[in-house]
Design a protein around this nucleic acid. Structure first.
Lengths: 165, 165
DNA sequence: GTGATTATTTATCATATGATAAATTTTTTC
DNA sequence: GAAAAAATTTATCATATGATAAATAATCAC
């Protein structure tokens, strides 16, 4: 039984929706996706992932609880969907695979900790400039309204920051 | 050769200092510690850990680079220091241990993602109240100046929030 | 226990960001 | 390619938080 399968999604469609337990880990083959959720009916982008990155709604995947997050395609996107149950079962016989997985989680953990730092004490403008510098492709491929909530500000505020040269 | 050893630290002393590569994972047996760093010469608390929690400066531990973070004892603290190199070597022969470690990292990852959400779109007051509710022991055992930077605000601002009812 | 140090609060003023509404630009659809 | 829809910017006003300084309270050292 195959562990992975390739799936295609049109721009603007949802790959996974809110309310179901996450049992899939995705790998972005082509395109861009985002994880998002709603706070007080406002759409908030938690993260973006481009080509060659893994995407999963970690909390649901690791706890088995229904996810409050959705995954959406920002461009036409080709994903490789990995059945997490099958993958995790493989770990019993292939500890090298489990190690690889562990390393990936470790790296994700480090990058979220760094993001906390940035949200903790950088101004919105600093965060925008850092993003611009670190990931210019984000600016090119992601609508500003998604970038704004990712940075923890409103779209209007982001517009103002961009205008202030 | 022992993998773990028990160490004691007086309140206010540093357990690990900035600039060295982290090769130790700690387990808090008694007391409270914090991970902190400096931004523009300002002391910022990244996280607290109480009894029965693991503490490590993840970025340095996982990348091998010198850490920009320090670990300090907030109370008199007894730590169990685990030699990470020895532990990681054990994973080669004990994949069950590696699995345990993976699960711990997964849980840490989930909690940092939740913290990002809170910093992304909650007001300082909401963050304070959430902390108060979720971890009343934090308020009892951690000086407010550390809590303030943990929440991403100044101490003065935290004082004001506390005073507003 | 007294003086010195450190932590916390209070006050004042400045500013970044939010909220709302409207104008403009860009993209999509047919 | 024109009309409609969506994204982005601009403007105005309100407010939460920062910066600084000073007052008070709590803790520590001897």
């Amino acid at each position: 039984m195959a562990i992975c399968k390739e799936l295609e999604f049109k721009k603007g469609t949802n790959i996974q929706s809110i309310g179901h337990t996450c049992r899939t880990i995705y790998f972005v083959k082509k395109g861009v996706v985002r994880i998002f959720y709603y706070k007080d009916a406002i759409d908030i982008t938690e993260s973006f992932e481009f080509e060659n990155a893994f995407v999963a709604r970690a909390e649901s995947l690791f706890t088995g609880k229904p996810s409050q997050k959705a995954i959406g395609a920002i461009e036409d996107t080709t994903m490789i969907a990995i059945d997490s149950n099958k993958l995790f079962r493989l770990f019993d016989s292939h500890s090298d695979l489990e190690r690889l997985f562990r390393k990936i989680i470790e790296a994700s953990y480090v990058s979220t900790v760094n993001r906390i730092e940035s949200l903790q004490f950088n101004t919105a403008e600093e965060r925008y400039k850092t993003l611009l510098k670190a990931s210019p492709n984000v600016l090119k491929r992601i609508p500003l309204k998604f970038i704004a909530s990712y940075l923890g500000i409103t779209q209007v505020s982001l517009s103002r920051i961009r205008a202030s040269k």
